[in-house]
Design a protein around this nucleic acid. Structure first.
Lengths: 203, 203, 203, 203
DNA sequence: AATGAATGAGGGTTCATTCAT
DNA sequence: CATGAATGAACCCTCATTCAT
């Protein structure tokens, strides 16, 4: 690939990022419907037409914002190793949750979009997000089943519990995001893990 | 108040309810922005102008729908009695949660509206919902503090834990609502309580 | 039907006509694409939204304009009677053509729209006009065949001749419309009929 | 002119032709407004900017397409010779019409553009086409007058008849173009001439 | 000469809200 | 009280044209 093309491609990617970033902020502040192309291009400091050079439609940018977020999350979701020599499940879980929280909480707009967008934007994107959450619930449910089988966890309805745990995490993220400044991630993580693992009851 | 006025007032209230019911369904199916006045008045079988005799604006009906829901929920939220002769906290909690779930899950549109609307519809309504959730979190947080003080619960960050627990409940409601037919409320309640109290870990 | 409804219906029809009339002018001046909703509502002196209370879309008004024109034309197109006691075919034809020309030439915008709109507006309307012209050609072709069979007309390719005659009429209409003031319709009609019947050659 | 310049000029002309050809197709398929620069440059396989190196605007290409067509037509329109030793007017006319039809019908896109473009695209080009048709009508009208004077033709309104004859030709061209495969040009020509000269009536 | 990213005016359409009846 | 025709701001999107490379 000639040098100019490389530069062109990278410039194009940069522009795309710039728009994506602007869109993420606008979506997070106004929701899908409340967000106007006007607001996005104003924030991105580009012309109306330019927007449509990079994204087919409002729905498309929203999808892209979501995809980006989901990719970031997926990269941080890993299976818990239970083999010999593996670190303790709780430690692994702690690392994973910590990493996830860090990613989400650090990018407040992203978190807002992720949290708020059960509001059916327009079919496909909503479906994609729903699919993502279903996917996450499945991972959790499977982990729960495994945990039960190896006797680490008590018996429970895996699906329901997975849904509850996902909600629990969302609740915590919302908490962190809603206040100007959230407590250190490691503290939050510890509380989260403790709550999920041993509940609130005193022994 | 003369008889006619009483009748008039009750008729007025009935009309209002009729619109409110229609609006709740429409909001739950289409979200705040997706809901159109047209859809609401069509469902309520009234004329356009009539709508505005009962509600100031779209935002106002949405607020009313929310308020109605919140009233129903508030009625079911009670302090846990810890005095002598009181039933066990767990039993009280179970009853309360059970009652709340029943109320919410039975009225799917209501549940949908409650769940979906962190998506900032339009400032005020969103604020009202946020305020409601804050209120709920406060109740939970206070209960947690009390529980810790009397040694029933282990120490934790009450605010954070309250947020997590609220999320947990929402996750479960979402789970129940999302499938066509949810498991018996009492089972769901038991799982919820167990998870919250003792977590997932086997003893 | 109650009196108010009658009035309402007639008012509605009047409004519709008003918009239709404005649209006809605008379409005739700017063509389908060149015509903007803005121009139409400005001419009709109504608000943007009002337009859409009466017509679904720009395409729909165009279709309505066309339909109106086609209805007017169809009413004036009749079969030539060849039975005993019927007036001479030439006289019948003269009357018909005269009536058609009068209708079209008197309404210049209408004529313009009819003439100019092979310009593919948008699928359906274009198809409708094309269908109309096809229909007219068919009527002419059939008449020609009949005429040939009864020995009134010389042999010819009916389809081709019908197309030519239709074009001939359109040419004349265009001529009449293009000049500010056209010659008396009866003169034009006579020339048209003569040309079609006996051509330009001297006997 | 240096050799390089000659080559350059011819290359430039070739490029221009290439764009013109693409434009003609696009205009004929989509009409003036429906045609997009995008479609033209795609078909011509050139870049956006390049287009504007050869044509000032969309309107300008359209004008050029029209001019090209009109040039082709003009070359085939000749005066009928009436002097001694000239071939019979009918034969001359037949040759001319035949040549014209061949030119137009063979280049369907061109025919489509010519036929469809009374739809005022954008003032100037429309004016040019109108001027062309006026010019053609004048030639026909003059020929008619001459024919009448020398007793070859019966008396008629030359202007009106010219308009009618032009329409007649357009009707026939439309007929030929609209069907996938038109009858042999010579047959069409004969019908056309016969119709124009002696009409449809049996002698 | 050639490119194509960028521009922004302008297009059609929707819909919450008002007000004369 | 109830009605629904009328309003017009705001929306998303297209596309002819420009200009830095």
């Amino acid at each position: 690939m000639p040098v100019e093309d490389v530069r062109a491609a990278s410039q194009r990617a940069a522009r795309r990022s710039q728009i994506l970033e602007a869109a993420k902020h606008v979506f997070s502040e106004a929701g899908y419907h409340g967000a106007s192309i006007h607001a996005i291009i104003e924030r991105a400091e580009i012309a109306r037409g330019t927007f449509y050079l990079y994204f087919e439609s409002k729905e498309a940018v929203f999808g892209a914002v979501l995809d980006e977020a989901m990719t970031g999350l997926r990269r941080r979701i890993v299976r818990i190793e239970t083999g010999l020599g593996a670190r303790s499940p709780k430690d692994q879980l702690t690392d994973m949750v910590s990493s996830l929280l860090e990613f989400v909480v650090a990018d407040r707009p992203l978190a807002t979009v992720l949290l708020s967008s059960s509001s059916t934007p327009d079919a496909e994107a909503a479906a994609r997000l729903a699919a993502f959450y279903t996917e996450v619930r499945s991972v959790i449910a499977l982990s729960l089943e495994t945990g039960v089988q190896i006797g680490l966890l008590r018996r429970c309805d895996p699906e329901l519990t997975a849904a509850a745990l996902l909600g629990l995490v969302r609740g915590i993220v919302e908490h962190c995001v809603s206040r100007g400044e959230s407590p250190p991630i490691e503290d939050v993580t510890r509380e989260l893990i403790d709550l999920a693992l041993v509940g609130v009851l005193a022994r």
